[in-house]
Computed example of a mutant assay.
Amino acid sequence: MPATAPIDWDDAYSNFAYIPNGFEYPAKWLAEAAAFRAEMHEEGLLKTDLEYGQHSRNRLDLFMPRGDLRGLAVFVHGGYWMEDFDKSAWSHLARGAIAHGFAVAIPSYALCPQVRVSDITVQVGLAITRAASEVAGPIHLAGHSAGGHLVARMATVTSPLNQAIRHRIRKIVPISAIADMRPLMKTEMNATLHLDAVEARLESPALLEPQENIDVTAWVGAGERPEFLRQTALLANIWSGFDCRVDAVEEAGKHHADVIEGLVDPDHQLTRTLLCL
């Protein structure tokens, strides 16, 4: 039997190279986010730069609904824990949830190599806690790519969230999440992430026990790189052996850059799944 060819892990995690005009998406996100921020600011429904920690990037924006408040949704952005994205690029993703009466918090966080991935996990816990102090009611979490990893971490027994916040969480939707971080140690990006075997294991949701009774939908675009399909299936498969509710969705026709667009539409199934509608 011929030997199996070694996996090119850098290629496995290279998303935009496989998306037509993929590198145009960041500018598109920024433009759509800026327009939505201006709209919400004009209506007095945007609270900007709420501090949740001491780092200059420990800030979040909070978008308020136009009618009665039903709860809090939080979106955590991606970028492999190191790319220079922040909260200002994702504001438009709040549109779907606020139409259903949810406030939406979108945090920035400090990036590698200034901090470690485990530090970012703690920061996201602090951001959620800060947002929860502003908004009463149930909490629903979504995150994309590295952000998907971070919200999945909030669902584990080693979550940095305290019990009061955990008890308010109704739904977690990791989108295109990295559930097992060990392959990243074999990529060039690890020169920035500085993952070692211990941290990779302790920060991998698929290698951790989920909280009891947590409700998780692992979401991924059907047209994404095979590694992201594998990682999504892995999380759902392993966590289905615990006392929690978990399923997986492969959204037809979506790739890594446009899989988040459903959050803009109040009637899209991604928004409805996040909000348990």
Rank of each mutant, 00 (worst) to 15 (best):
D119H: 14
G101E: 06
C112P: 00
A142L: 00
E134Q: 15
I139Q: 07
A127G: 01
V135F: 08
A132M: 08
P107E: 01
I120R: 08
S133C: 10
Q114M: 13
P113E: 07
I98R: 14
A131D: 10
L141M: 03
H144T: 05
R130Y: 11
H140K: 03
V115I: 15
T156Y: 04
A127W: 04
P113F: 07
T121Q: 15
T129V: 05
V124H: 02
A131V: 11
A142D: 05
V135G: 11
V117Y: 07
I128P: 03
A103R: 09
A127D: 05
L111I: 10
V122Y: 00
R153P: 00
H140I: 00
A142K: 06
V122M: 07
A99W: 04
P138S: 08
A105K: 05
R116N: 12
A132Y: 09
I106N: 04
S145I: 03
S133T: 13
E134P: 13
M154E: 09
V135I: 15
A131Y: 04
L126N: 14
V157P: 02
F102E: 08
A103N: 10
A136M: 12
H100R: 07
V135L: 13
G125E: 03
V122I: 14
T121I: 15
V124S: 07
P138I: 08
G125W: 01
V115L: 11
A152K: 07
Q114G: 13
V157Y: 03
V151Y: 10
P107K: 03
Q123P: 01
I98C: 11
L141T: 06
P138N: 05
G101F: 07
V151H: 10
G96P: 08
Q114H: 14
A155S: 13
G143M: 01
C112T: 14
A103M: 11
I120C: 04
A110V: 08
I98T: 13
H144K: 08
I120L: 09
G143N: 04
G147K: 08
L111K: 15
Q123I: 02
Y109Q: 01
T156I: 03
L126F: 08
A136I: 11
V157K: 12
P138G: 12
V122Q: 13
L111M: 12
A155L: 03
A127K: 00
V157I: 14
H100M: 08
A105M: 07
A127V: 06
Q114N: 14
S133D: 15
R153Y: 09
G143C: 04
P138W: 01
G143W: 02
M154W: 06
V124Y: 04
A99I: 06
G137T: 03
A99V: 03
H149S: 02
Q123D: 13
G147H: 00
A99Q: 13
H100N: 09
A131W: 12
A146V: 01
G101S: 09
R116E: 11
I128C: 02
T121N: 15
S145E: 05
A142F: 07
R130V: 12
